[in-house]
């Protein structure tokens, strides 16, 4: 049985704290995610899916509650250390891909590793290898503005993997893709799972919900888990 990799206990996150329009995006969530599984977060917009993703992935700190990653409490870690955790454990694929325009695909993929300052040659070859695995090696010098939707997503995935993280988080991955590309994406997820990585997805898409690779579905409503 896979052990718990990410644990949330009584986690709440507020926005606009102290202001009259304060609201709790995540309002009391207890969740345990296991290593090596593919988990899907669903729920209507405003249910707190995105916020929950940021909390799971060490992108934000909870206002209340405890978050543990690989047994270590990260809830009160200062930013420097939280970022270190994030760099080592998590890779993100954003809904908008968020590749930096004006830079080549290769540069974009190498970007997350810059602060770690590995030897340049090593980093470059690792990036090229990832692009190769995703079928993008021939586009490595192209500017990201010239990529098609599917190519851009694969570039984003390569970037998420550059630091070899055990967890990959994807926010609404199929929202900008047609059926064919969505299926291609799910095939990549399967490959990631085979590599032993943990995958967390958030999606409205029925295609994703019905995919066989999804091990668990977590439904959210009004900041709480309902299923």
């Amino acid at each position: 049985m896979s052990e718990a990799f990410i644990e949330l206990r009584g986690v709440r996150k507020a926005y606009n704290e102290g202001l009259p329009n304060q609201f709790w995006a995540v309002d009391g969530v207890d969740l345990t995610l296991e290593r090596g599984r593919v988990t899907l977060l669903t729920g209507p917009s405003g249910s707190g899916k995105t916020t929950l993703l940021t909390l799971l992935g060490c992108l934000a700190r909870p206002t209340e509650g405890r978050v543990r990653v690989a047994g270590q409490d990260v809830s009160s870690l200062p930013e420097r250390f939280l970022t270190e955790q994030r760099r080592h454990n998590f890779g993100f694929v954003f809904q908008q891909f968020n590749l930096i325009r004006g830079l080549s695909v290769l540069d974009n993929v190498m970007l997350p590793a810059f602060p770690l300052a590995p030897p340049h040659g090593e980093l470059r070859s690792r990036a090229l290898q990832l692009l190769g695995e995703l079928g993008l090696e021939h586009r490595s010098d192209a500017r990201v503005e010239w990529l098609s939707g599917g190519e851009a997503q694969r570039a984003a995935i390569a970037r998420a993997l550059i630091n070899d993280p055990p967890v990959v988080i994807a926010d609404e991955p199929t929202a900008n893709l047609d059926t064919h590309l969505s299926k291609a994406f799910l095939a990549i997820v399967e490959r990631l799972k085979d590599e032993g990585r943990t995958v967390i997805l958030s999606s409205h898409d029925a295609l994703v919900a019905e995919a066989t690779i999804v091990d668990r579905i977590v439904s959210l409503r009004d900041g709480k888990v309902v299923g």
């Binding site: 507020a14 704290e17 102290g18 700190r61 909870p62 206002t63 209340e64 809830s75 009160s76 200062p78």
Partner: peptide, 10 residues
């Protein structure tokens, strides 16, 4: 207060 995740601490 390091343990607090409040907006002020951040």
């Amino acid at each position: 207060d390091l343990n607090s995740g409040s907006a002020r601490q951040i």
